[in-house]
């Protein structure tokens, strides 16, 4: 009995010692977050309320909260265009990635790994280069334009590049792997016997897909759409390379304000507003999709 007490006493003191260990282990991550996430956000928020000072490129803190209002009213068109393009691009990517991920997960057999490598293969090439490549593909001398011309879908005077569809195609293309991989992950986890059980319980292939496969792949749909929608909203490269002045997205405005006009308060307030809107949208989306209900 005494022995038991002694060992249990030793165990508690050891437990106390151990209880600090998680904090030590977390410290690098926490410090990282504090330095590179919390601190920049505070800087961003405080920069946003500054106003121009005496010298050129000098800004002083005057807590002018109206900067936010100015930012929103001044760039409302670009904001709404960003969300519109990102939404369409996300839906387009979903429409392409779902059959792709489904095929890899269920029908690819021994080619599964090769196909997965091919999905991420574009990452080995620069993001900018790949986007410029689309300019070639969609250009008047490109193969796609030639094909459409032969099919009499477009005429010589049509331009596929420097247009809103080109920007959206670019966005959908560039974020496709981020859509495909989570979808593949959740489809691949589906127990094939559950699908067999559905067939056994009088559901034909289409009903099985609708009632079993789709609901079970929802975690992947949610993750994939978020991973596509969030970066697509803030993207400026696609609009820059594949767009025209009337397809400017909010990312282009922020980019121009920071680097060209160097109106830091305006750029900061735009960035912060974008962040807040995305966060709110994501929260509503997750709440609606109800991912916690799923396995």
């Amino acid at each position: 009995m005494a022995a038991v007490v002694r060992t249990s006493g030793a165990a508690t003191s050891e437990l106390k010692k151990k209880s600090l260990v998680p904090y030590f282990l977390l410290a690098p991550g926490l410090i990282w977050l504090a330095l590179f996430f919390v601190a920049p956000i505070i800087t961003l928020v405080s920069t946003a309320t500054k106003t121009p000072g005496v010298g050129i490129g000098e800004f002083v803190q005057t807590y002018r909260w109206a900067n936010y209002l100015d930012a929103i009213t001044g760039s409302a068109a670009q904001f709404s265009r960003s969300f519109l393009y990102a939404t369409i691009a996300t839906l387009l990517a979903l429409a392409i990635a779902y059959p792709l991920a489904y095929g890899i997960a269920f029908k690819s057999g021994k080619y599964k790994n090769i196909l997965l490598v091919l999905v991420v293969a574009p990452f080995f090439c620069s993001f900018i280069l790949r986007t410029i490549a689309w300019k070639q593909i969609l250009g008047q001398n490109g193969p796609l334009f030639r094909l459409l011309l032969d099919l009499h879908i477009v005429s010589d005077t049509t331009h596929l590049t420097a247009s809103a569809p080109a920007v959206i195609i670019g966005l959908a293309y560039n974020f496709l792997p981020f859509m495909t991989l989570p979808l593949y992950g959740s489809l691949e986890r589906i127990d094939p016997r559950v699908l067999e059980a559905s067939g056994d319980l009088y559901a034909n292939a289409f009903t099985t897909f609708r009632k079993v496969t789709v609901p079970l792949s929802m975690p992947g749909v949610v993750a994939g759409t978020l991973l596509t929608f969030i970066p697509a909203t803030g993207d400026y490269v696609n609009a820059e390379i594949l767009g025209n002045p009337s397809t400017k997205m909010i990312g282009n405005v922020i980019n121009a304000q920071f680097l060209n006009t160097q109106d830091y308060p305006l750029a900061a307030s735009l960035s912060f507003i974008l962040m807040i809107i995305i966060s709110v949208l994501v929260m509503i989306y997750i709440r609606k999709a109800g991912t916690e209900e799923l396995v």
Partner: peptide, 17 residues
């Protein structure tokens, strides 16, 4: 799904969702 046959699967295969 056209057969008047139902199966109890080895690992039950209940629909998790």
């Amino acid at each position: 799904y056209q057969r008047p046959v139902n199966t109890v699967f080895q690992n039950y295969a209940l629909f998790p969702h």
